[in-house]
Design a protein around this nucleic acid. Structure first.
Length: 759
DNA sequence: ACCTTTGGCAGTGTCG
DNA sequence: CGACACTGCCAA
């Protein structure tokens, strides 16, 4: 059976699905809380009022429970299944899947698959006189709404007058139109549109058949998840406001009626239609962002692959991985440990990857780069790293930790990974067999990406104590075996290519100089044909999935530090670089959202010169001179001088000792003004005086034109670019540009642009 | 519903 | 002044 939406009310499941003729139908089912126990547990252990059913399935008891009861004394609801499971654990019995909801259980047991929902994009405008925090609590009237369908078809509604009756009608009409759809997509809708609409519908008692029938998917959250891997510049990360993202992606921003003006627009009879028009146009941006990125479709594919409903919750790796695993377990008669929510978990840091410090400075020529294909999934499969495969008598040994695993039977995690990689290969074949550019090809490619994404998420899920698959031995063996493989590859390179030099490596990659393309290619082949088969065989692995690839070579490469470099391609996967191909940039300020745009601009210009092949310092000196004058004398707009930093947690959780960081202080004052501040909110500020401590900064919204140019140059713009230039031209003295602030220490006559070579 | 990981760089502020 | 904690963001 397939469903498009299902939800649970106590022990009742409601499921909407499209039948063979495409008609939407509702199916009801009932279920009970279930937990599994080992079959060695004596049957009389289940002679308990809370246990209402018991049967043996495979190696497990499957027990069903009554829901619970209200404890008057403690004034709390007692969940019978949880209570019973906790008692069993304290008596030394293992429990399995005792936290899985009735709905989830129903979907797993009946192998319920996911249908494609009818998607609609939504945006609303609310009374701007009400502060944000009060609006999401339901204290602001909805002024208008807009819905846009996948092809751009749209419908909207506007408040007729400032009264409950009018708003009731407005929302009634919204609900009526929403009935045609199953999935509501909005920008920041989890934090705004959804709570506002639900609260207003509740407040005004607008009739809805079942308010839970819709999937809510926050496109902002989806964008954040999926954009991490494809963001190109810092500019992509300074803001996740719809206006900014739309401008980045579509070259066109919001038609924004400034949110603080919406009520005025609504009130003015000549402007009311403008408010609605803009609301529709903004909603259409959501549709166009999806057209451009395909992130929602990718998410849909991930959800179909794992069997989770395509809403915001399923964006989380723990959620979709858990469902994939539970379904796999159901198919193979395997149950997983119960994971009850715990407020406190023991701190459980483990060792991660190996990162090598770059050994060379200056512009390095002809650097070959190899990397492991899907290193962590490959390591987990090769060493059979799975909680159920751990065995002191196992013949497979992880060199990183000494952990022994049973190599004779694949563990569940490895079975899952293998299944995902097989599916990926399958869709890759499909993609190769159909015409490029067709919908079939794009669909196949999306499935390829989705399965890779899910496979790559496993490592993280095994590494978090919040997951039922958490296993410190398994996760640390994964990282340390990865370290070991990388180091063994360095040794092998030294042996096979004596003239070579490994100058850098990070987690799964090695950067090598001193050899030709042909020599390096041969080296990679020998790693795959000789080294890894031998190493894995010696470790007792029964299968070898370790594979190295010659990814690319740089004609010129510069490091400023570990994880920070810029390089110009010689070739990429064997294809020669075009003369105009963009340099690859990692970690530098230009890639960061928390630097001033001026700093990124200068870095971009320097990288441009580098990409154009300039190898003489004087060309760069000219650039810096001009730019320094620009920063110190020209009129500069707010956008290029402000600094953006994100709020990472609730404001009260910041350490109270001493002064809070400026962006936290500004966030606190914004909160006091009624603005919404949550984890992820970006704060823009301008430094007014950076010469004192603590430095003086103001909210960018209160910018008057005053700012500290010297701070801007000496701290924000020059140091990152100095690092880059000093890395490129280590023998050149760049100190001339260090200071700008008038001081008696600084004497221009002593500065010599082409002066003595720095040590 | 209730959280993917560690490693590394860099700026700010405090403390001695 | 240098060491150190705190913070954010990026590489993998």
């Amino acid at each position: 059976m397939k469903i498009v939406r299902a939800w649970q009310t106590k022990n009742t499941i409601s499921a909407l699905y499209f039948d063979d003729k495409g008609t939407l139908r509702l199916k009801m089912a009932t279920g009970k809380p279930v937990a599994f126990f080992d079959d060695v547990v004596p049957k009389d252990r289940f002679l308990d009022q809370r246990v209402v059913g018991l049967e043996k399935t495979g190696r497990y008891w499957r027990a069903t429970f009554s829901s619970g009861h209200w404890d008057k004394g403690r004034r709390e609801f007692v969940d019978h299944r949880e209570q019973f499971c906790r008692e069993m654990v304290s008596q030394g019995f293992a429990t399995y899947e005792g936290d899985v909801s009735v709905l989830k259980r129903w979907m797993i047991d009946n192998n319920i698959q996911i249908q494609r929902p009818r998607r609609v994009y939504l945006d609303i405008e609310t009374d701007s006189r009400v502060p944000f925090v009060d609006a999401i609590a339901g204290h602001a009237r909805v002024l208008c709404w807009a819905l846009v369908g996948p092809s751009g078809e749209h419908v909207s509604g506007v408040l007729k007058e400032d009264s409950d009756e009018a708003e009731y009608q407005l929302l009634e009409s919204l609900v009526h139109h929403l009935e045609e759809y199953d999935q509501i997509v909005g920008w920041n809708s989890d934090m705004f549109d959804k709570p506002v609409i639900l609260a207003r519908i509740d407040h005004l008692k607008v009739p809805v058949k079942d308010i839970r029938r819709w999937l809510w998917l926050d496109q902002l959250q989806a964008y954040k998840r999926y954009n991490i891997s494809s963001a190109e510049s810092g500019e992509d990360k300074v803001s996740f406001k719809l206006d900014h993202v739309a401008t980045m992606l579509l070259g066109e921003g919001k038609h924004d009626v400034d949110a603080s003006q919406s009520y005025r627009y609504w009130q003015d009879p000549t402007l009311r239609s403008t408010l609605v028009k803009y609301c529709v146009q903004d909603t259409d941006l959501l549709r166009r962002i999806e057209e451009k990125t395909g992130y929602l479709e990718l998410h849909q594919t991930v959800c179909e692959a794992c069997g989770v409903q395509p809403d915001s919750a399923s964006l989380k790796p723990t959620v979709f991985v858990d469902m994939f695993m539970l379904r796999l377990g159901q198919a193979n008669g395997i149950r997983f440990p119960t994971k009850f929510y715990a407020d406190e978990l023991e701190s459980t840091k483990y060792t991660g990857a190996f990162v090598m410090q770059p050994t060379e400075t200056g512009i390095i020529e002809n650097v070959h780069v190899c990397d492991f294909a899907s290193l962590y999934p490959s390591v987990m499969i090769a060493w059979n790293l799975s909680p159920d495969a751990k065995s002191p008598t196992g013949t497979c040994t992880s060199p990183g930790t000494g952990l022994r695993t049973d190599a004779t039977k694949p563990g569940v995690i490895c079975t899952a990974l293998q299944a995902l990689l097989d599916l990926r290969a399958h869709w890759n074949n499909v993609r190769a067999s159909v015409a490029p550019g067709t919908p079939e090809s794009k669909d196949a490619e999306r499935r390829t990406n989705a399965y890779k994404m899910v496979a790559n998420s496993f490592y993280g899920v095994v590494g978090t104590p919040y997951s039922r698959y958490y296993d410190r031995d398994v996760v640390e063996s994964t990282t340390l075996n990865g370290q070991w493989l990388l180091k063994q590859t360095v040794l092998f390179a030294r042996q096979v290519m004596p003239a070579s030099k490994t100058i850098y490596g990070d987690t799964d990659s090695l950067f090598v100089t001193g050899v030709s393309v042909e020599e390096f290619d041969a080296f990679v082949k020998r790693c795959n044909d000789e080294l890894y088969p031998r190493l894995t065989a010696e470790a007792g692995c029964s299968i070898n999935k370790i594979k190295l690839a010659y990814e690319k070579a740089f004609s010129r490469l510069v490091f400023t530090a570990a994880k920070r470099y810029v390089g110009k391609y010689l070739h990429y996967k064997g294809k020669p670089a075009r003369p105009d191909s963009k340099p690859e940039i990692k970690g530098l300020e230009i890639k960061r959202g928390d630097t001033s745009r001026l700093a990124r601009k200068l870095q971009g210009d320097i990288i441009q010169l580098f990409g154009d092949g300039h190898s003489q310092a004087d060309k760069y000196v000219e650039l810096v001179k001009t730019f320094r004058d620009h920063v110190l004398t020209d009129e500069l707009p707010l956008e290029v001088i402000q600094i953006t930093k994100g709020i990472s947690r609730p404001l009260e959780e910041y350490k109270s000792s001493g002064n809070a960081p400026v962006h936290v202080q500004i966030a606190r004052s914004q909160l006091a003004k009624g603005l919404q501040i949550t984890a992820g909110t970006k704060i823009n500020y301008v430094v007014i005086d950076g010469s004192c401590s603590p430095l003086v900064a103001i909210d960018a919204a209160e910018f008057t034109g005053e700012f500290d140019r010297h701070y801007l140059w000496e701290t924000m713009v020059w140091p990152p670019n100095l690092r880059l230039l000093a890395a490129m031209f280590p023998r050149f003295d760049w100190n001339y540009f260090d200071h700008s602030r008038p001081s008696k220490k600084w004497n221009p006559s002593q500065g010599d642009l082409f002066g003595p070579i720095a040590k």
